[in-house]
Design a protein around this nucleic acid. Structure first.
Lengths: 100, 100
DNA sequence: TTTTCATATCTATATTTCGCGATATGTAAA
DNA sequence: TTTACATATCGCGAAATATAGATATGAAAA
């Protein structure tokens, strides 16, 4: 867990928003068609619609966030669902508070 | 107080280190020649020596950090001393935790 | 009142990031 | 076994950032 690396990922309005939206999928996204819960998170298309940026940009952002271990992907058929990695997010906040 | 703007400033090893060093000047810097306390912080030259980057780079970094209200400058004769702005740092941590 | 010293600002270049369209990949549907 | 769809990756130009040297500024010392 690299604090500065994670700070870089979070130093972007869209990426910070995505992390926030994923905290409450019911509130921020429509229900998925194939499943009736958000246990594995939210599919890329919904995140893209909400963010209003191109498909490739959002996919790249999600990839960045995943490389930083902030989110966890799960494949369901054609779709990839992303959910928060609460343990890492928590650890980041704790480390940052201690460092700062 | 803009959370993303502050995150950008802190998403850099040197700048994060500077903020940490300023938390304990006695521990991290030699005593100043003209004054025997660090109440107004630490002069630019000492910070530059410790960081090992050029004078202009450190001055630019400190200026960035000041624009983000993370540090407060005080002029003492030829020297500029910088100290932490604990209120803003605290508010940043609180906001980030709530957002994240 | 020149000179010196500490810091700030300007200018320049290299690297990184932003964001996109085009294309590739993997999966399910037809 | 093609086709269609969701997502990932590639390649790109534009914008921002990192970092330095040169120069300017402001204050004290000579």
């Amino acid at each position: 867990m690299n604090v500065v690396a994670i700070s870089k990922v979070l130093a972007n309005d869209t990426r910070l928003s995505i992390l926030r939206w994923l905290k409450d999928p019911e509130e921020n996204f429509p229900p998925h068609k194939d499943i009736d819960h958000f246990d594995d998170g939210v599919c890329v298309g919904y995140i893209q619609d909400k963010a209003g940026l191109s498909q490739s940009t959002i996919s790249t952002y999600l990839s960045l966030m995943q490389q930083a271990d902030l989110i966890i992907p799960t494949r369901h058929g054609k779709w990839t669902y992303y959910r928060r990695n609460e343990a890492v997010i928590d650890q980041y906040m704790k480390s940052l508070r201690q460092m700062i």
